[in-house]
């Protein structure tokens, strides 16, 4: 009974305008599919198990089954422009529980990558981590912190060994990796 009721829910209505939207972008769809390995969105049968356990559904109305459906149909530009993919908390429940091995969260990561490539809506702070890694190998340098009694401490004061950043060779190779990805 439940399955029938759910099957009656049409494909996503909240991100695309079904009356005026342009045609699906099939080239972009192929590009997306190439990024996600075995977890193909077209295997989804819209059971909505992913969305039912999604914590970001409760908080931000993220609907992983909709993202899967739209990607599968080829409405990639619309998905990227909506910014909805940045609402995923990466809890991986959808990947664990999908009966069709679709892994909506992997699709979300692939869509975020596409958003970066196409210079679409990307929260700036995500790009900051990349520049920090290029510069220091890590997302940040060791920070000063305070105890509960507001004493200032750092690694040295806490008797922790010296922290080392990776050498120049690392940076050169990592630059190359980023270039490879552009091709």
């Amino acid at each position: 009974m439940l399955i029938k009721a759910r099957a009656a829910i049409p494909y996503s209505m909240s991100i695309i305008d079904l009356t005026t939207t342009k045609k699906p972008d099939l080239a972009l769809r192929l590009k997306l599919l190439a990024k996600i390995g075995e977890h193909k969105p077209y295997n989804c049968f819209q059971c909505i198990r992913c969305t039912s356990g999604c914590p970001s559904m409760k908080m931000l109305e993220l609907k992983p089954h909709e993202i899967v459906s739209l990607a599968s149909l080829g409405f990639i530009e619309e998905l990227i422009a909506s910014g909805t993919v940045w609402a995923c908390a990466t809890c991986l429940k959808c990947k664990e529980r999908c009966p069709q091995a679709v892994a909506p969260v992997d699709l979300i990561f692939a869509l975020r990558n596409l958003a970066v490539e196409k210079e679409a809506k990307v929260p700036e702070s995500f790009l900051r981590s990349l520049s920090a890694i290029l510069e220091t190998g890590f997302v940040q340098k060791p920070q000063d912190t305070v105890t509960r009694k507001m004493e200032k401490v750092n690694r040295e004061k806490l008797d922790l060994p010296k922290f080392h950043e990776p050498d120049e060779k690392f940076k050169a190779a990592f630059f190359k990796v980023l270039e490879l990805f552009q091709e």
Binding site: K35, F109, A110, R112, N113, V116, V122, F126, L127, S129, L130, I133, G137, F138, V139, H164, P166, D167, F170, F174, V177, L178, L180, F181
Partner: peptide
């Protein structure tokens, strides 16, 4: 370990391949 870097997680949203490489 010597010469290690970030594990890749923080840049997975930006570039999955670079994250995997790390």
């Amino acid at each position: 370990l010597n010469n290690v870097s970030c594990c890749g997680t923080p840049i997975k949203s930006v570039n999955m391949f670079a994250a995997l490489y790390l």
